[in-house]
């Protein structure tokens, strides 16, 4: 009974929040609504006996990702409403229709795949004693150890990339086409000095 109430409450609120994200004209409202939606989604994870993932969802998404967005938005001008002009309505209507067809496929797929047989070594009932974080830990550090380490390396690479991209003197060095620009400017400067 509680599961039903919780499921419908969380679904309604999540859909509402995400609709605000997609339709709002103000970036700050969008970000706040997205943070709320992330927390509500962790409610689903708790309902689905994935308490570890629920905690990770709150910590990583609401704590790290949304905080990163909040800091990133300090660089941008977010007080104004976002102006967007739509050039070609035909393409947009086409994409709307395509997405509607996709909805139909996605909604009917579960009914079609009801007799899906799953044969996986992780269905081992021994794994299902103990709390969820314990099970996740056991599986993560045995079967998924290499992807776990690769994810660690990937996060390190992403961190370095983020630091370099938003670094102090980025308009003068390292990234993108600005290297050539600065070289050209320096050469022009030298030429002027010689003259």
């Amino acid at each position: 009974m509680y599961e039903i109430i919780a499921f419908y409450l969380f679904s309604a609120l999540t859909i509402w929040m995400f609709l605000i994200v997609v339709l709002s004209k103000n970036a700050l409202y969008s970000m706040s609504a997205l943070a709320a939606g992330m927390i509500l989604i962790s409610g689903f994870f708790f309902l689905l006996n994935a308490s570890f993932l629920g905690v990770v969802q709150i910590i990583v998404y609401t704590g790290a990702v949304m905080a990163l967005y909040a800091f990133g938005m300090m660089f941008l001008d977010t007080t104004q409403d976002i102006k967007e002009d739509v050039h070609s309505p035909k393409i947009i209507y086409g994409l709307w229709i395509a997405s509607a067809v996709l909805v139909v496929f996605m909604v009917t797929a579960p009914f079609a795949a009801e007799h899906l047989a799953l044969d996986s070594p992780l269905s081992d009932p021994k794994l299902w004693d103990g709390s969820n974080p314990q099970q996740v830990g056991v599986v993560l550090f045995t079967k998924y150890l290499i992807p776990f380490e690769l994810a660690a390396v990937m996060l390190l690479v992403a961190m370095i990339a983020g630091i370099i991209l938003v670094g102090k003197k980025m308009d003068q060095s390292i990234t993108m086409a600005s290297i050539n620009d600065t070289k050209v400017e320096e050469e022009e400067f030298h030429i002027k000095e010689e003259k």
């Binding site: 990583v60 990702v65 990163l68 941008l76 994810a151 990937m154 996060l155 370099i164």
Partner: peptide
Amino acid sequence: IIAVAASEVAVGLGLLVF
């Protein structure tokens, strides 16, 4: 997927600010 999303945000937001 959560790990990928976190790193995507770090790089993507850096590029965005750039």
